[in-house]
Design a protein around this nucleic acid. Structure first.
Lengths: 261, 261
DNA sequence: CTGCGGACATTGGACGTCCCACATCCCATG
DNA sequence: CATGGGATGTGGGACGTCCAATGTCCGCAG
């Protein structure tokens, strides 16, 4: 992985770098791409840019840093992969919004890779998601203004209704499921929660097809989600914990069957 | 090996497009780099490779896919950034181990970027970490074999001792703190927990210097960690929850002060 | 026989250049 | 006044070439 050794900053490179000129000095190697990455991050931080702000063009970067275009491009691609910059073909580069897309890729890939063996990455991921959601739902109950709960939870109620409707005519769409878990924790006002859970959710659903058919019916799924909603509505912490456990029971059994078969 | 520029018959469609002519084909643009990424992932999955296994060389990839070296390299750099492949100069490429390094980069960067404003990424991150650890410690209590608790928790006890010793002579080293949070949940046998928590921990400690001085003394820190250990040892769920809350109280106050200042 | 050093092959790293694709803006043309 | 077609600027793709790092292996010295 890319290490960024500290003690390099002093000493040798004070200023411009002549393209084509190689420094034969025996020392560590802050690869060109790494240099560019650090430089771009530095520019963003130093200039106090925010997500969406325009960044220097490729040409400007190659000139300012005295580095070839390919290296610049490699670095930018990496920064794009980790969601730090946003590249738009024919338009320019911009400070990126946090997307966790790279995180999803990594988790999804390694989960798929270890699906059949004992390490079972996906199972571990689900366990973490369960722990997280179980804790979050309690925090949600604590944080809700007890004044007008139904109004605050109205969006959730709508999703539950939608879910029930879909279950009645067939299967619950992934989008509806995702929407539930996204909306539920929104009152916590912690956008990272939504993003992280979204990432977990996405990994699960990318690999869902590789798992067998679910043990529970769509109606069961709708019911467990409704139970979570009701527990939050009534502020019943124990019921919320139990409902969350129920919700993940189906997932667990599906995974367990995979491990056996 | 000599390269024959007489044209390549392999699936490289260099069909000319007339400038100014809009291609009516529905807009799908699988960029070269993306193609290579998918191809490499596919190779790993299809051949059932595991972490550490060797991958085709750059030259082999460019030939097999009929794609230029730069594109191949860009793709591989990205895959390296998200921890899917591991590139070792002068040796070869290998299937990567999960590292979450890209995730850490993304979180650390966006946290630093939003440090001064209201969005306060870091605070949200800490909140998630607290929820996670609070839930995990309860799960840990449930999962421990009640037979020989002291033996199972011996490593933790040693770290606590180390922590106390360090606190007595000055400051607790980050490594010791990290070791505690890493070892504590090891009995859960969920390696992802360690990695995810490690990522959170690393983000926090990368930005720690930008926060002010801590409110609590090293002795306080050692004490809160000891309380967590004791709660697990005695299986006291309420005490564990409280100890975890205490543990994060210092972090929270530090963050709050930043928001005010 | 042992071990150490250096040649060699292999593999990644970097660069410059050329051309393509895409987006935007402006101006000419109807 | 509306519109379509450059002109321009930006990223995307590819190629060829050279450089540097790493591992292997063989031969020479002890």
């Amino acid at each position: 992985m890319a290490f960024h050794p500290d003690g390099w900053s002093t000493g040798n490179d004070t200023g411009r770098r002549v393209p084509g000129r190689r420094v034969p000095v025996a020392g560590r190697r802050p690869s060109r791409a790494t240099e560019v990455q650090e430089a771009v991050k530095d520019i963003i931080l130093r200039r106090g840019l925010v997500a969406g702000d325009p960044l220097p063009t490729e040409s400007e970067l190659m000139e300012e840093l005295g580095i070839g275009r390919n290296s610049v491009r490699e670095a930018l691609k990496v920064l794009q992969a980790v969601g730090i910059v946003d590249i738009r073909h024919g338009f320019g580069m911009f400070v990126g919004r946090m997307s966790l897309a790279g995180f999803v890729d990594e988790l999804a890939f390694h989960s798929r890779m270890t699906m059949q063996d004992e390490r079972n990455h996906l199972g571990h991921l689900i366990e973490i998601r369960e722990v997280l959601e179980s804790g979050l739902v309690l925090r949600l109950i604590d944080s809700l203004d007890s004044g007008d709960l139904p109004a605050q939870l109205a969006p959730i109620r709508d999703v539950i209704e939608q879910m029930r409707a879909e279950a009645a005519v067939g299967a619950i769409s992934p989008e509806t499921d995702r929407l539930f878990h996204d909306l539920l924790y929104r009152p916590l006002r912690n956008p990272l929660v939504g993003q992280l859970l979204g990432a977990f959710w996405q990994v699960y659903h990318e690999l869902r097809d590789d798992l067998g058919t679910p043990d529970e019916s769509p109606a069961d799924v709708a019911r467990t989600h409704r139970d979570i909603y009701r527990a939050v509505l009534t502020g019943d912490r124990a019921a919320a914990t139990e409902a969350m456990r129920e919700h993940f029971a189906g997932v667990r059994s599906r995974l367990a069957r995979l491990a056996r078969g």
